[in-house]
């Protein structure tokens, strides 16, 4: 098996990165950089933690990757396309390649589990037949096959986050971006969600998790990019929260 892993890793090394940042800075106000001169690349199929304290620039990074904002300096490539050169009408297509999961779940409380997940498909104009096929499949992946008709307020925090993950996955994104996905969950549910994200990664989806949950980062031993005051201070291939460069 290890031989295959080496071959696969070598193949991945040669592949162009799915995400690449080249000297990216973002200033919301003049001379106050939220992130400064950040460069890194992420290969297809990687699992990456981005860690750092509040105000370290993690949220800015997410906004930049979703092209909700543009960098003041530098270039960002997603799947080979430079984001700042992208016409605004192409932005929705970019976002369909990136599934996003948030700390506060961002579910529609007036719609049941099925409709919350189906919503992502309706937005990209999928047919009812496709929705009826894809939504149950993804709900099965996240272990919510028995909760189709439940409303969000009838679910536990962990279940809500599973719905959010299902919604992010249903459109088959290349990248899954999770912003503090365990921030509102107890340790048990946190581990369940992280295990789920690990499984999704094994199926080939690139997973980026922004977190400051030290325990999870330390135990999972994945690549860790650490941000501090807007600077990238370390990038460790298999590391923990406090790894040094």
């Amino acid at each position: 098996m290890s031989e295959y892993n080496d071959i696969l890793n070598q193949f991945r090394e040669e592949e162009p990165p799915i995400i690449e940042l080249e000297g990216v800075s973002k200033a919301y106000q003049k001379d106050v950089d939220a992130i400064k001169d950040v460069s890194f690349s992420i290969k297809k199929g990687e699992f990456v933690f981005i860690v750092g304290k509040s105000g370290s620039g993690k949220s800015t990074l997410i906004k930049l990757l979703l092209r909700a904002i543009s960098p003041t300096k530098g270039k960002i490539y997603v799947n080979g396309r430079e984001l700042s050169r992208m016409h605004r009408t192409s932005i929705p297509k970019l976002r369909r390649k990136i599934g996003v999961v948030f700390q506060d779940f961002k579910l529609l409380n007036d719609r049941n589990v099925f409709e919350n997940v189906a919503f992502a498909q309706r937005v990209i104009e999928k047919s009812a037949r496709e929705i009826n096929r894809n939504v149950p499949a993804v709900l099965s992946v996240v272990g919510l096959s028995d909760k189709y008709n439940s409303l969000p307020n009838e679910l536990s925090g962990g279940e809500k986050q599973r719905v959010a993950v299902a919604r992010a996955l249903v459109n088959n994104p290349m990248i899954l971006l999770a912003d503090e996905p365990t921030g509102n969950l107890d340790p048990k549910n946190s581990w369940e969600i992280m295990t789920l994200l690990g499984e999704i990664n094994k199926r080939g989806t690139t997973v980026i998790v922004v977190t400051h949950n030290e325990e999870i980062v330390n135990v999972m031993q994945k690549r860790v990019i650490k941000m501090e005051n807007g600077h990238l201070v370390s990038d460790v291939r298999k590391g923990g929260y406090e790894n040094e460069t």
């Binding site: 929705p92 990209i124 104009e125």
Partner: peptide, 11 residues
């Protein structure tokens, strides 16, 4: 949510 999951401006 719509913006994040790739809804067009028109949608």
């Amino acid at each position: 949510i719509m913006k994040n999951i790739g809804a067009t401006d028109f949608f």
